[in-house]
């Protein structure tokens, strides 16, 4: 195995660094505490959602309902959690649990996750519309304070990213249970033979995804101060792209939490970078697609070197 193939994390780091350097070159004023915070503010909920998607991809499934789920969590946060904190907390807890149950059901009945989550996206979206038929609600004061806090030395978004990456890295890459969870994606049967209950592990992976999905919704409301039922629908595709940009694979339990966080930040930065380039708004979405393709093309170098060795 070559150096590059062993250290897959280099690719996301280099892409983020290149994009960041290009952004600073275009707009030197972004190179400040305030500028960085503006650039990466909205990346925090996306990073949390990407981690949630990563938990699902880790066990060889894919979640098409994540955007709707994050929107629902945001709606609950902006209404119940603000008006009746205890009840709000209970609902959010129930959402996390329902994700765990979903994982267990998908495994027990051998259902295709892509379809079940597709159906669930209607369910989450429907409940969100029920709770908040029109945009509104308000962010709880403590959440607003937390998301706009100004820590010394580095802006909130950067500090949050480091914390998210560190916690999930410890959980998924370093801890015993994290290794087993990745093993479910690698070879579920041998994990079962080793005496683990795969259904519980899948429930755990989905439960973790639910937890991070809820956190993403809360973080989003803390930044946006209100919510609506469609606030985070684009997160479904963004989170999948973020996981892959971060060096993850769709199968085999090959994921990287740090990479996923960096991937989410790269995607967010790509959008800001394009607006700094004064590109016509018509082409911004397309250029985002082009950047995505470009970064993923770089994966070829890693993949081929890895397989040759």
């Amino acid at each position: 195995m070559t150096f590059l193939a062993r250290h897959r994390i280099i690719l996301p780091v280099v892409s983020l660094a290149v994009l960041l350097a290009a952004t600073f070159y275009m707009q030197p004023r972004a190179m400040s505490y305030f500028g960085l915070n503006l650039l990466f503010n909205l990346a925090v909920p996306i990073a949390l959602a990407t981690i949630a998607q990563m938990m699902i991809i880790m066990v060889n499934d894919i979640d098409l309902s994540l955007g709707a789920f994050v929107s629902l969590a945001a709606c609950v946060t902006a209404t119940f959690l603000n008006d009746a904190p205890m009840l709000g907390l209970l609902i959010l807890l129930a959402l996390v649990l329902s994700y765990a149950v979903l994982g267990a059901v998908i495994h027990a009945l051998e259902l295709p996750a892509i379809v079940v989550t597709l159906g669930m996206s209607f369910v989450w979206g429907g409940i969100a519309l029920f709770i908040l038929p029109s945009p509104g609600g308000a962010a709880p004061g403590w959440l607003r304070t937390l998301m706009t806090v100004k820590p010394p030395f580095a802006p909130m978004a950067v500090v949050a990213a480091v914390i998210i990456a560190a916690v999930t890295h410890l959980l998924i890459m370093r801890s015993g249970i994290g290794t087993v969870l990745r093993g479910v994606g690698g070879n579920a049967r041998s994990v079962a033979r080793a005496g683990w209950s795969v259904i519980r592990l899948k429930a755990l992976a989905y439960g973790l995804a639910g937890l991070f999905g809820v956190l993403a919704g809360m973080a989003l409301v803390g930044l946006a101060t209100s919510a609506d039922a469609n606030i985070a629908l684009r997160y479904t595709l963004l989170s999948i792209a973020g996981v892959i940009l971060g060096g993850g694979e769709f199968t085999g339990g090959k994921v990287s939490p740090t990479g996923a966080v960096i991937g989410a930040f790269t995607l967010t930065l790509a959008a800001s970078f394009l607006s700094f380039m004064r590109l016509s708004p018509d082409w911004q979405i397309g250029a985002q697609g082009a950047i995505l393709i470009l970064v993923l093309t770089a994966r070829l170098i890693f993949r081929q070197k890895g397989s040759e060795a």
């Binding site: 999948i240 792209a241 979405i285 397309g286 985002q288 697609g289 082009a290």
Partner: peptide
Amino acid sequence: PPIIATLAASLIYQS
């Protein structure tokens, strides 16, 4: 992966 390829390409078609 086809999911990512068609997703990224669709952004360009949209533009």
